[in-house]
């Protein structure tokens, strides 16, 4: 099955989904060195986002999250792709800046109510086509 998402930052990736079941701000919610979710009470607390196709239906927009995103790239702990439930510039700005720093980047796409569950294997194409493998 395939879905079409809007491309915020172009790229291709394949990987396993980690879905965040509660809103999160990366700043104060994700430790960039370990890539682990640290937010107290978060359903995915303790899990690593590194290398995952990260599905984030709802973000909380702490503006410092761009810096956490860049630091994840810097530490080699970035997710494989971001699938966002709404338009956002905070996390993708971290990706734009990572590219300016010469780091390999990741696709960022947006779609309403992304239906993907933790453990799904997905591929994301540069055109925003998402396929369940």
């Amino acid at each position: 099955m395939t879905w079409q998402a809007e491309v915020l930052f172009e790229g291709a990736a394949t990987g396993k989904v980690l879905r965040l079941d509660a809103p999160i701000s990366f700043w104060g919610g994700v430790d960039p060195r370990s890539a682990c979710i640290t937010l107290a009470g978060h359903p995915q607390r303790g899990q690593s986002i590194a290398g995952q196709v990260l599905v984030i239906p709802q973000l909380i927009g702490s503006s410092s999250s761009s810096a956490v995103m860049l630091e994840l790239f810097y530490c080699g702990m970035a997710p494989a792709a971001l699938i966002l439930g709404g338009r956002d510039a905070i996390l993708p700005v971290g990706v734009v800046v990572a590219r300016q720093m010469g780091r390999p980047t990741i696709p960022v796409v947006v779609m309403q109510s992304p239906p993907f569950e933790t453990g799904d294997r997905l591929s994301v194409s540069p055109e925003g086509r998402i396929e369940r493998l």
């Binding site: 915020l8 930052f9 700043w27 960039p32 503006s63 410092s64 810096a67 956490v68 860049l70 630091e71 790239f73 810097y74 530490c75 338009r87 956002d88 510039a89 993708p92 700005v93 720093m101």
Partner: peptide, 25 residues
Amino acid sequence: MLGAKGLVEIQSSHIDGCLYHGDSG
């Protein structure tokens, strides 16, 4: 990414990015 159709000229800025969150910044 935000769906803006253009840019606005600004007159000033207050910069939050000077707080350390990691070496990369």
